[in-house]
């Protein structure tokens, strides 16, 4: 009898602890999924955040915002965990001071941007599509250029990031991708 009580007791305690840990875990996940958290590091605040301010996803006619995690952290649980584990790399580079000045950041920027482009390409720009969807776009309400390119893009199997690089931040020197859109002769 006593043995059984202990067993049940352990089970109950286990369950309660589980709920607490699970809740705590998810709570921590949510806490680290806010703009406030992202810009608690000056590396993020002084560079990408400063550039994002005032852009369409921060300030627009309807007042709906897309914040850092909306574009950079997946919504689905399993992908979210994966991204959070990857983020430990950011902690390492924070400690190493890899991008702790504007100059260092600019020097590394193309590499970082390429990571993001690659991920978005692989997921068919999943995070953009959490809010925007080809299927829900009223092409007739769009501008002349958007209407044409969205229909062509959809047919050609293109994804948002193919055409909308630099939607939230300044772009790095992409002369390797497209030498025709950079200043050819840089001032010394």
């Amino acid at each position: 009898m006593a043995k059984r009580n202990i067993a049940i007791g352990t089970l109950l305690v286990g369950m309660v602890l589980g709920v607490i840990f699970w809740g705590g875990f998810n709570w921590a996940m949510e806490l680290t999924n806010t703009e406030q958290f992202c810009i608690s590091c000056h590396e993020m605040r002084d560079n990408v955040y400063a550039e994002y301010k005032g852009r369409i996803h921060d300030l627009n006619r309807t007042g709906v915002r897309a914040t850092c995690p909306d574009c950079h952290v997946p919504k689905e649980w399993i992908y979210k965990i994966k991204r959070k584990i990857q983020a430990s790399n950011e902690l390492y580079h924070k400690v190493m001071g890899s991008i702790d000045t504007r100059e260092k950041f600019e020097a590394k920027r193309l590499e970082l941007a390429r990571h993001v482009w690659k991920t978005m390409k692989e997921t068919d720009s999943r995070e953009c599509r959490n809010c925007h969807e080809y299927g829900s776009m009223d092409y007739m309400a769009q501008g002349r250029r958007a209407r044409r390119e969205h229909q062509e893009g959809l047919d050609a199997g293109k994804t948002c990031i193919d055409c909308h690089k630099g939607i939230a931040h300044q772009l790095p020197d992409m002369s390797e991708e497209d030498p025709s859109a950079v200043l050819a002769v840089k001032p010394e």
Partner: peptide, 17 residues
């Protein structure tokens, strides 16, 4: 944006694009 690093206009108006 047209910055020293990237020219948004040319991403559509260059001879290449």
């Amino acid at each position: 944006e047209v910055t020293i690093k990237h020219n948004k206009c040319l991403s559509c108006h260059s001879w290449k694009n």
